Computed example of a mutant assay.
Amino acid sequence: MSSFKNLGVQQEFIRGLKELKITTPTAIQEKVIPILLNADTDFIGLDQTGTGKTAGYGIPILQKVKASDTSIQFLVLSPTRELVQQIKKQLFKYSKYSTHKIFIEAVYGGEKIDKQIANLSRVTHIVVATPGRLLDLIERGTIDLQYLQTLILDEADEMLSMGFKEALNRILKYTSGNRKTWLFSATMPEEIRSITKKYMHPNAEQIQIDRNIKVNTNITHRYVTTTDAEKLEVIVRFLERYHNDRGIIFTRTKAGAQKLAGLLKAEGFSVAALEGNMQQREREKVMRAFKKHTIQVLVATDVAARGIDIANVSYIIHHQLPENTTYYTHRSGRTARAGNKGVSLALIAKKDITQMREIEKSLQIQFIKQEY
């Protein structure tokens, strides 16, 4: 069995990882860390969500930071504010026992840009950013990336599916030069292939874990045949069975998320909605409560739930099937993270059977019929 020490990770970072109860490398970490520590190369890493990609690239960049150099050396791009905040927090925790002080800043929309500009005027070695806010800072001339060593695209497929294609292209163009690019993604759609061809070295090292497995194998996929009128009753029975566990219920619309959350509250469940029309402060309050177990159930839209990485989410419920199979992968991937097991339950009307079979075929999974 591999260890972080065998992979070349320095003791100060092993200590930080150990404090987070991360003692054994995941499959992607085992393959990625030695490459990124030792090679000065462009890199593509493909693996499912929830497998530890943040530590996979995070430890190498922390170990490579030259603390005496006050310029921005590493830039991590990620699709959502929540994920950016989380990556910054994880990098900070990994480097807790570092012999040199490593300065990390997060920049994202929904917070005053002036405050972020002021923070960037201090010594900053690593920036974690959402594409939109970073582009704003670049165009204002308030972020200096001329000494950037490596640009990391985290959750690249999610960034593209959220409409950041143009922003990514402009950022890649702006930072082109001697910098390396590390790209991490769960899937490899054509738009990502296009980015790799245009902005990355043709001989970029590539690691793909479980090439034939498109969805985490620790997830059990179940379905219940029901009608729209009976869905609330099915969910109530399911939640009563899983009353000690945390989970996320996905709806297609913002109004649907708020309505379902209200109905479940009336039934006595500890639940809150998470959707795009909510104020950033309110969204952060809900996420804090969910992480602290004050709230047991989130009712969320696809966009609002992107980038949520919370341990011990036991189940996902699809109030309606998502519009495409990629969304099904992202939704179900919120459970069974970091080696845990989880359940993904789809509420299926007769008209949805064909779509369910298409998802099975496309993702090479099997739905098991359940009664609740």
Results as ranks from 00 to 15, higher is better:
residue 221 H to C: 09
residue 222 R to Y: 14
residue 223 Y to R: 14
residue 223 Y to P: 12
residue 224 V to M: 09
residue 224 V to L: 03
residue 224 V to Q: 14
residue 225 T to N: 15
residue 226 T to W: 00
residue 226 T to Q: 07
residue 227 T to I: 01
residue 229 A to E: 11
residue 230 E to T: 05
residue 232 L to N: 01
residue 233 E to I: 00
residue 233 E to W: 01
residue 233 E to Q: 13
residue 234 V to L: 06
residue 235 I to Y: 07
residue 236 V to M: 06
residue 236 V to K: 14
residue 236 V to Y: 03
residue 236 V to Q: 10
residue 237 R to A: 07
residue 238 F to Y: 06
residue 238 F to V: 08
residue 238 F to Q: 06
residue 241 R to G: 10
residue 242 Y to A: 06
residue 244 N to V: 14
residue 246 R to P: 03
residue 250 F to D: 15
residue 251 T to M: 06
residue 252 R to C: 04
residue 253 T to V: 01
residue 254 K to M: 03
residue 256 G to V: 07
residue 256 G to E: 07
residue 257 A to D: 06
residue 258 Q to D: 15
residue 258 Q to Y: 04
residue 259 K to G: 00
residue 260 L to F: 05
residue 262 G to D: 13
residue 264 L to M: 15
residue 266 A to N: 13
residue 267 E to H: 15
residue 268 G to W: 10
residue 268 G to Q: 11
residue 268 G to R: 10
residue 269 F to K: 07
residue 269 F to P: 09
residue 270 S to N: 14
residue 271 V to Y: 05
residue 271 V to W: 07
residue 272 A to D: 08
residue 272 A to R: 13
residue 273 A to S: 12
residue 273 A to T: 06
residue 273 A to V: 00
residue 275 E to A: 05
residue 276 G to L: 00
residue 278 M to K: 02
residue 279 Q to V: 09
residue 279 Q to L: 12
residue 280 Q to M: 06
residue 280 Q to K: 04
residue 281 R to F: 02
residue 281 R to I: 04
residue 282 E to N: 13
residue 282 E to Y: 08
residue 283 R to C: 13
residue 283 R to M: 12
residue 283 R to L: 13
residue 283 R to S: 08
residue 285 K to W: 10
residue 287 M to G: 06
residue 287 M to F: 12
residue 290 F to S: 05
